[in-house]
Simulated scan of single mutants.
Amino acid sequence: MKPRIYISNDHTGVEMKQAIVKYLTSLDYQVTDLGNVDGKSCSYASKGLELGEKIAGDKDCLGVALCGTGIGISIAANKVKGVRAGLVSELETAQLIREHNDCNVIAMGARMIAVDKALKLVDAFLKSEFAHGRHEERVKTINEYHG
């Protein structure tokens, strides 16, 4: 069964988000849009935290986070316990954040990459799985940190 996908964006990611939602729904993913829809200025921090809360509350889901650079929204999402958001801009990284880091959120910069590339990155992320093995202890260390 395909995981539910939560997607969120600030005002800079509306166009990219719309393309990703269209792409994912064409592949029969259930997509819940938490993002900005009108392009009016909004807080990437609030959008990232909201996404993080949804991801933390639904262990069988994945997330997509978009802001101008992808940095701010990923930092915000990562503040929520249980979220592992990775910022990507190339295919190998999109794959490795799942395989090595068991990331449950892919973050991208709407001002940094083209929409067609974003679709390829999301695809690589979704087709990859956690490799376990030597990576398990590292992810466990991150998950158990309470600092």
Rank of each mutant, 00 (worst) to 15 (best):
D38N: 10
L51W: 10
E53L: 02
A124M: 09
S41H: 00
K40V: 12
A118S: 15
G133L: 13
K54A: 06
E50N: 15
G63R: 01
C103R: 03
V115Q: 15
G82A: 05
D38C: 03
C42Q: 08
D116A: 06
V21A: 00
T32Y: 07
G82Y: 03
A45I: 11
E92K: 11
I71L: 02
L87T: 13
G72F: 09
G35M: 05
V14R: 03
G109W: 01
S46E: 15
A56K: 03
S89K: 15
G70Q: 11
A107E: 03
Q18I: 11
K79R: 11
A114M: 12
L96M: 03
A131G: 13
V83G: 05
C67E: 12
A114T: 14
N36M: 03
Y44S: 09
G109D: 11
V122W: 08
L49H: 13
E92Y: 14
G86V: 01
R111F: 06
I113E: 15
N104F: 02
C103G: 09
V88F: 13
V80D: 01
D60N: 13
L87A: 12
E90T: 12
T69N: 10
K47A: 14
A118V: 15
D38W: 07
I73M: 04
G35A: 08
V83I: 04
G86T: 06
K40C: 04
Q95C: 05
N104C: 03
K117I: 11
Y29E: 07
H100D: 13
I75V: 08
I97S: 00
G86E: 05
L96V: 02
A124N: 11
I71C: 06
G72M: 06
K59P: 12
V83W: 07
Q18G: 03
G133C: 10
K81S: 07
T12M: 04
V83S: 05
E50W: 02
T69D: 11
R111G: 08
A107T: 07
R98G: 00
A85R: 00
V80E: 10
Q95M: 00
N36F: 01
I20R: 02
C61N: 02
C103D: 13
S43V: 07
S128E: 07
T25W: 05
N101H: 05
L62H: 06
F130G: 08
Y44Q: 02
A107H: 08
G63H: 06
G133T: 15
V115Y: 03
D60Q: 12
L49V: 15
K59N: 04
T93P: 01
L51T: 13
V14D: 00
S43Q: 12
G35D: 12
H135P: 03
K47I: 14
I71A: 08
L62K: 03
V122D: 10
A131R: 14
V83K: 11
L34E: 10
I106D: 08
M112K: 07
I106S: 02
Y29L: 04
S128C: 05
K79N: 10
N36G: 02
K120G: 13
I75A: 01
A107L: 11
K47S: 14
A107V: 11
C67I: 04
L66P: 09
C67H: 01
Q18V: 06
L34S: 05
Y29F: 04
A107P: 04
R111E: 10
G52E: 08
F125Y: 09
S128G: 08
